[in-house]
Design a protein around this nucleic acid. Sequence first.
DNA 1: ACCATGTACCTTGCATCGCATGGAACCAGG
DNA 2: CCTGGTTCCATGCGATGCAAGGTACATGGT
Lengths: 130, 130
Amino acid sequence: MEPGESTKQARAAAQLRKGVLEYCVLALMRDRPRYGVELLHALEESGALATSQGTVYPLLSRLRRDDLVTTTWQESSSGPPRRYYALTDSGRAALEEFTRVWPGFRDAVDTFLTSPHLPGTPHHSPGDPA
Amino acid sequence: MEPGESTKQARAAAQLRKGVLEYCVLALMRDRPRYGVELLHALEESGALATSQGTVYPLLSRLRRDDLVTTTWQESSSGPPRRYYALTDSGRAALEEFTRVWPGFRDAVDTFLTSPHLPGTPHHSPGDPA
DNA sequence: ACCATGTACCTTGCATCGCATGGAACCAGG
DNA sequence: CCTGGTTCCATGCGATGCAAGGTACATGGT
């Protein structure tokens, strides 16, 4: 079903999300409580972290199991009630912990990816996609 | 070693490595063939990506199974022979693919971690009594 | 010769995670 | 009643990081 090339890109991106998704979801709740589909849409809009319900809901269950979030039901004017997820004290601490270690990690990967050898490499511009 | 806090930090960092380690190892082979312990030491020196043999060797087996690397044995003047891992054509392509998607991913995480609506956010120290 | 140490390679078993798939419940409009 | 949109959740599979354990080679001490 896959033409092949898109598989590789999807594969690389898929493996990347592991572990990071958890903290990005926590980061989304930092300002205010969010509900499942809202988180899903926010991740989708980011582009690189788009995922599915089958990923987000088990993740939210784990966060609740580990006491990183609490939930409250709230009625919706259009549709079934929504379960809003809010950060607990532990959740906020975990998020700050991640915020602390992330730059070092990011920098390490950047260091590995930048080769110190070929100054004239015909690299397409790092101007970046949207 | 840092006391106490390093546990949480290690936990967050451990989740982070998932999926990225594979491509960092490929990146290390970009310039010249490397052998297992050499890769292990390079990762350890990076700090954030330190891992163990139990992680690297199964990873290298997978890379070989997927034809991303080839290996050649080489004698060592001090110790057992070393198996050197070198990038194949597919391996180099996978590395470039990852190099393409990584900036977008990194940028997305950075965006989530920086709160977009509180310009005057008090960067209070951890343990704030709120 | 024997054994301890350092180097280097590899396997097994466990826990975790992303994700495709499928299903359930609620509301509005025809 | 029935179709469509929204929201929630669970199950099963494949892949991954990692601790623990095992094998083999070389050197030096006794």
